[in-house]
């Protein structure tokens, strides 16, 4: 794999994970457990979709086949999507929503932090702005994991269940493949070992404070999103998210 190919692939991964998690949060509109959460969820979603747009725009320039950011977001099918499987998992209850957010935010925070020092200036610029947002996201989701883990008996039970349900999707966040390694070697992407270490460290710290038990480090992990092999959920997410673009392919302006 050439560096140029890996870079395009890597940008789509960043964009798609932001986009799909943002979409999942959009589904919660009007359904949050409190009005303050309504605002906060939409705020996080807005940040994520905004970041996705920045990554898509850069990806579109490099791919350079006439597709723009919108085409990349709304005209690719599931097998072309490169998001982490974690981000496409359903909202379920608020423990799962927050657990998913927390696992992602830890990964997102350390990834962006490293990307601010990327040898690719465009990436470093996008990451610098995104890192501010992700820092807030992580603070928020960590707080919720602690509140739910160390709140009531019921919230503890639900939060532990959420950790158990989601754990098998976390391996993908910190298991590098060729693309990740090429990016790291080029000084563009984060060092995979460091990312894994940072992710484990912070997850363990927060879960301990939350009186929760993480999954086993050698647990079986469900992976494939980064290569376009998804869970059954993504097809439905895209069917909804891409409805207008598919139903009205001739429309060029909206």
């Amino acid at each position: 794999m050439t560096q140029a190919e890996a870079l395009k692939e890597y940008l789509l991964r960043l964009a798609d994970s932001d986009m799909i998690l943002g979409q999942r949060l959009c589904e919660l509109c009007g359904k949050a457990p409190a009005l303050e959460e309504e605002m906060a969820l939409m705020n996080v979603a807005l940040d994520l979709v905004g970041q996705a747009r920045n990554w898509y725009e850069y990806a579109a320039e490099l791919i350079d086949d006439g597709r723009d950011a919108d085409k990349l977001a709304f005209r690719r099918d599931a097998h072309d999507y490169r998001n982490l499987l974690l981000t496409e998992q359903p909202n379920e209850d608020y423990a799962v929503t927050m657990g998913r957010q927390f696992f992602f935010d830890v990964y997102h925070y350390f990834t962006l932090k490293s990307l601010t020092e990327s040898s690719d200036e465009r990436i470093a610029g996008i990451a610098a702005k995104a890192l501010k947002e992700a820092t807030y996201h992580l603070r928020r989701s960590s707080e919720w994991v602690k509140r739910l883990g160390d709140g009531t008996e019921e919230s503890h039970r639900r939060m532990q269940e959420a950790i158990d349900i989601l754990w098998r999707f976390t391996g993908e966040l910190i298991t590098p493949d060729d693309t990740d390694r090429v990016m790291a070697e080029a000084g563009i992407g984060p060092d995979p070992d460091q990312l894994a270490k940072d992710w484990r460290g912070m997850v363990n710290e927060v879960l301990t404070q939350a009186t929760l038990t993480p999954g086993a480090e050698d647990a079986w992990m469900y992976m494939g999103g980064k290569h376009g092999e998804h869970t059954e959920h993504l097809g439905f997410i895209l069917a909804e998210m891409q409805f207008l673009q598919r139903a009205y392919p001739d429309a060029t302006t909206w």
Binding site: P33, R147, G151, S155
Partner: peptide, 19 residues
């Protein structure tokens, strides 16, 4: 929809208070 959101979120708000 509004009632479900608030009813089903009761345990979340209770947890926040307890914490």
């Amino acid at each position: 929809t509004r009632k479900n959101a608030i009813d089903e979120g009761a345990w979340v708000r209770e947890a926040a208070v307890a914490y």
